[in-house]
Design a protein around this nucleic acid. Structure first.
Lengths: 355, 355
DNA sequence: CTTTAGCACTCGGGGAGTATGAGTGCTAAA
DNA sequence: TTTAGCACTCATACTCCCCGAGTGCTAAAG
């Protein structure tokens, strides 16, 4: 059964007032807030109906009403107006986004921090590979006779390097041989295709070379592994203390340690977001994790390119400013997608003039 | 004036009991705790003296005594027994330390996380360059005709890379020319010696090359800058909620946001530790930062090599288990120094067998 | 001079009782 | 269907009071 227009208006007013004040809303206050030209008694009747249908709750008999998860859900689905960001806000976000193009993981961590600052809620961000990565090429750079740099590049165009120091001498030709060997034997292989046997064979082909092949390949494997299950970056966890629902230190602590330490679960939570493209909102008990049952999560996904996606999200009490948070989050996610979509380097000159 | 033996014993008992229970200690309890064969009345007299001399405080007239910062200071300086770690603890730390040799900054961040977990206090870690860094060499690796990898190595042997994509074609000889140019013009220069003029000159010498010199040098400058003022890694901030002194959410929040957001100040705090070599303890008002006035900090420094030092520290209430924390911290710091002291690669084979 | 026993005193914490007021549900009239 | 009126509920804040841990002081004992 559809709710009457007036009831919707009332529900919306309850949600929005409660979001702002964190106080239960009474019939009298609603009479003013909604602008309806009915008395508080009429509203009381409607409130009773809404409560019966499960959209509202009353903390105790003689308090006002607060929205139930079901009420928030209806609000989010139908009643909420798409919030548009102010010019200033978009500007602020753009600046933060274009700040510096660094390594992938740093950018993601920074984006999380930014969102947290923007929304005043704890935020998290992660990248999730939806496919198996491989190494695209190896390069070895001789530094001096006892050390060299290994540079590996994955097929997702991430480049990582490591400096190796050796107890013995090494010559340029030797290194070139190794490079060729690495590139022929190990390029295009996924993590589990890089078997010890394969390494042994290659090592054999290389002749006496201190087991260098294994060392470089081990490094490459570490890189692949790190990229495939990259960590969850959490930021601004202290913001949960801002909100009155977490005045109880015990509660606050439970949530905080869940957010900061229990990364595995935080990852599980992000899965739903990876399916669709738009912003997802999970309200209270809609969350799978027990620790989040009275918490809401807003999620947005972004494209990293090369089949990789990322998720950025915000955690807060169910009494959360969904409209604003969703707007900001999806703006940031879009920004990130664009950022990763474009080449690392804009064609334009980076500094002022050019000869 | 020196304190009598008995008074020292009493002070020590007060501190240690208070550290454990967070409750003021009374004269009767002390009579038992100290094992002294005197009555509670005698102890009361001594307590009165100690209070008058500023080593103890009483929260209110009819409560027991708690240590003042001055009391903690005396305890730390003279009364505290060097705590020895159990075999299990050292084993645990060693395992965590040897886990994985990654990039410098990651290792540092991880060490912070580890210390926090070990001590159940928030921890932070940072590296601080005591000298100006320079670039030691540039390498450019051609990936395909429209992209290349720039690899820069600093004189502190940190290697960083970045993938550049270009709108136009690029040939191997061109790239080699650029490499030579970069290596002759920019090696050995500190950050502020890398002036725009220098870049313009080099750019000119390179002929038409889309301003690539500037781009690579800008990247190098970013690297130097990031290394010279590297960030502070904070971990386990939620641990402050464990302690009864932070049941007041307001207090907890102040400290937390100081720790997580105000990195600049956290850095300021670390300066004292860089001077000496051993563990430093700052008790309550001894801290410069206002936010830490009723908080204690334990600091240890470690060597990264090449004239770089790092600091790792723990923050907690003045009622902190100084002995344990100091022991653990200095053990970890030593471990880090050793870790950085040895070459990136132990001569021994990393895996099982070797042909 | 130091230690001890005794005793009156202080003060924070906790529990019971009470007033307050916001907000409700219900009823009866418009 | 809406409104006014009214009795009722219940969380919150406040006051009052008791309890007990712990103190400081005094006077006697070692």
């Amino acid at each position: 059964m559809e709710l009457s227009e007036r009831k919707k208006k009332i529900l919306r007013a309850v949600v929005e007032s409660y979001i702002q004040t964190a106080e239960p809303v009474g019939s009298k206050a609603l009479a003013e807030l909604t602008g309806l030209k009915v008395s508080s008694a009429t509203i009381r009747n409607d409130l009773a109906d809404l409560t019966e249908q499960g959209y509202l709750e009353q903390p105790h008999t003689s308090a006002g009403r607060i929205p139930s998860p079901k009420g928030y859900r209806l609000y989010v689905n139908e009643l909420m107006e798409e919030q548009r960001l102010s010019l200033e806000e978009t500007k602020q976000i753009n600046e933060a986004l274009h700040l510096k193009m660094q390594e992938l993981d740093k950018v993601i961590g920074q984006a999380g921090r930014m969102v947290s600052q923007l929304t005043n809620y704890p935020a998290f961000a992660l990248a999730e590979g939806s496919r198996r990565l491989t190494i695209k090429r190896f390069d070895l750079i001789l530094v001096d006779s006892a050390s060299f740099i290994a540079v590996v590049m994955t097929d997702s165009s991430v480049v990582k390097n490591k400096l190796f120091r050796l107890p013995a001498d090494l010559s340029e030709p030797q290194l070139q041989l190794l490079t060729t060997l690495l590139n022929t034997a190990f390029v295009g292989k996924t993590l589990d295709q890089l078997t010890p046997e394969l390494m042994r064979v290659a090592e054999h082909a290389a002749g006496s070379s201190y087991g260098l092949i294994s060392l470089v390949v081990s490094f490459a494997m570490e890189v692949l592994e790190a990229l495939e299950n990259s960590p969850v970056y959490t930021a601004g966890t202290s913001h949960i203390l801002d909100h009155p629902e977490y005045q109880d230190v015990g509660k606050a602590q439970k949530l905080m340690s869940y957010l900061t330490e229990d990364h595995a679960l935080a990852q599980a939570l992000a899965l739903p977001a990876l399916e669709g493209d738009d912003t997802k909102i999970l309200i209270g008990p809609e969350n799978v994790a027990d620790e989040l049952k009275d918490t809401s999560v807003v999620l947005a996904s972004y494209d990293i390119g090369d089949g990789m996606k990322g998720v950025i999200g915000v955690v807060g009490p169910t009494r959360m400013d969904y409209a604003k948070v969703a707007a900001k989050l999806s703006y940031v996610a879009d920004g990130l997608s664009k950022l990763f979509g474009q080449p690392e380097l804009p064609p334009a000159a980076p500094e002022k003039e050019e000869e």
